[in-house]
Design a protein around this nucleic acid. Structure first.
Lengths: 116, 116
DNA sequence: TCCATATTTCAATAATCCTTGAATAGTTGA
DNA sequence: TCAACTATTCAAGGATTATTGAAATATGGA
């Protein structure tokens, strides 16, 4: 992840519809969701969801895969992780306790036993 | 962290100068940096850095504190952590191994021994 | 008080982004 | 092949955001 990619990713996430899409896909996990299903959930037109999905893909935050008539979108967990890493690089000047809140945040779904 | 705050935060991070500011402050830790020092490092005019610092503060990502003539800015690690948590909420549909890359990302500066 | 330092505010211009609806393209089953 | 379903593309208009330089504010020391 370089600065250019990070900027594109943050820009992608700074729009309501797109942020909702990413969050839905993050929850959906490996199953992903079809474009139409996403459009229903976030209540926007097909053409509008398509516009935003393209933007998210261009930013590298989601992937697409055709499955019969539908196109399934999935969260790009690697890219999301890379984004967090880029933002927190060399953080807190050697005093880990200072940025503990930020670090702890990502233990979101770690299996019991793994700690941040 | 609600959606409104998250959108403001991502919008704030989606601009080159502001992203550089946040990254510098994340590295600076508790010491923070003065507005002028930031302006020098990212090579923009005083008025421009001021504009972007205000934007970052409005988004809740940084804090300011006057110290004699200078105004010292510091990263808001709580807000950054909250942002990550918001993005990853209920992630990966109950399959933690899928979003492991994202979770691992935030072990950035964890003290030796802690791992994600 | 006067000057220098450090930073912010303001107004105007330039650039970018979102929404909308109609038209187009790919896939499937009859 | 035809019709239905699913999704994307395109162009136009409206709205938001960044940059610039000059002027203003706040602080500290002579």
């Amino acid at each position: 992840m370089d600065e250019r990619q990070a900027l594109a990713a943050f820009a992608a996430l700074s729009q309501e519809t797109r942020l909702q899409i990413v969050r839905l896909l993050v929850v959906a996990g490996a199953d992903g969701m079809a474009a139409g299903a996403l459009a229903e959930r976030v209540e926007v037109s097909p053409s509008n969801i398509s516009f935003h999905l393209k933007e998210l893909e261009r930013a590298g935050l989601i992937t697409q895969q055709r499955e019969s008539r539908s196109i399934i979108y999935r969260a790009g967990y690697d890219a999301l992780g890379g984004l967090v890493r880029f933002l927190m690089e060399d953080c807190c000047g050697g005093h880990p306790e200072i940025c503990a809140p930020a670090v702890a945040a990502a233990s979101c779904c770690a299996p019991a036993g793994a700690k941040a």
